[in-house]
Design a protein around this nucleic acid. Structure first.
Lengths: 110, 110
DNA sequence: CGATGACATGAAGATATCTTCAAGTCGTGT
DNA sequence: ACACGACTTGAAGATATCTTCATGTCATCG
C-alpha cells in the first residue's frame, strides 16, 4: 500500500468534515439529486456548492452524470449511509453522557 | 439542539481527520494506554501528541486519568470502534472499485 | 446564431489547523 | 528540598482549507 491505511482514513474523515458536504451526502443518501435541487436544500452559494461537490468527486464519494441540461449526482459508496448513521449514534450517546454529567453537577448528592 | 446536527457531525468527523488522532484511537480501541506508551507507537513529538490528545479530550472522544506518575487515556465512546471498522470497509470497497476501473482501462475489450 | 440557465474552474483573501519550540505543572524517588 | 521523568500549555510560523468573485463551458431554446 502506498499510503498507510491510517492516513487514508484520516483523509477520508477529513472530506466528511464539512457541514455542506455532510448535507450533500445525506441528501444523496435518500436519492440522486441534480445540482440545482441540492442548491434548494442547502443555503450556500452555487460556486461554493460546486467546490464541495468537486472535493466529494475527487475523493470518489460521489459520481456525477450529465442529464440534458442538468448534472445529477449520486453516492458512489452506499456504505457511507451506515457511517452517517454510526456517527449520529455516537453523537447522541455523547450528548447523553454529557447531560448525565450535568445532572450530577446539579443534584450534587451522589 | 443548539448546533444543527449536520454541523455537529462535521465537527465530529473533522476531529477524526488527522493521522495521529486515528492512530491514537486505534491504539486505545485495543486497550488503555499511557501517554508514553502511545509515544512509543506513534512517531511524533511529545508535545504534538499532547496537542492531539487535547483535541480528542475537548471533543469527548477520550478521557484521561492520572495513575501515579503517568496519565492513562481511554476511549470514552466505545462505538468509535465500529466507526473505524466501517471506515476501513469503505476504503477497501473504494480501492477495489478503483482497481476494477483500472482493469477495464487495461483490458480495453468491454 | 445568440441568449439563457445550469454548472465548473481559478485565483485570492480570510480563517483554521499543524507543527515545533520554549516554558510550566505535577508526582516520585533521593 | 531538589532533580528528574511524564505530560501539558501557549505562542508563532508554516500549511491547508473556506468562501467569494470573476470568468468559462455546455446544452437547450427561441
Amino acid at each position: 500500500m502506498s499510503v498507510p491505511l491510517y492516513q487514508a482514513k484520516a483523509e477520508f474523515f477529513r472530506t466528511l468534515g464539512h457541514p455542506a458536504r455532510i448535507r450533500i451526502l445525506e441528501l444523496l443518501a435518500e436519492r440522486d439529486h441534480a445540482v440545482h435541487e441540492l442548491l434548494e436544500q442547502i443555503s450556500i452559494e452555487p460556486s461554493n456548492l460546486s467546490q464541495q461537490l468537486s472535493v466529494l468527486r475527487r475523493t470518489s464519494m460521489v459520481v456525477s452524470q450529465r442529464r440534458g441540461g442538468e448534472v445529477v449526482y449520486s453516492i458512489s459508496v452506499p456504505e457511507v449511509r451506515d457511517l452517517l448513521l454510526s456517527a449520529r449514534k455516537i453523537l447522541v450517546a455523547r450528548a447523553e453522557a454529557q447531560s448525565e454529567f450535568e445532572d450530577e453537577l446539579v443534584n450534587a448528592s451522589e
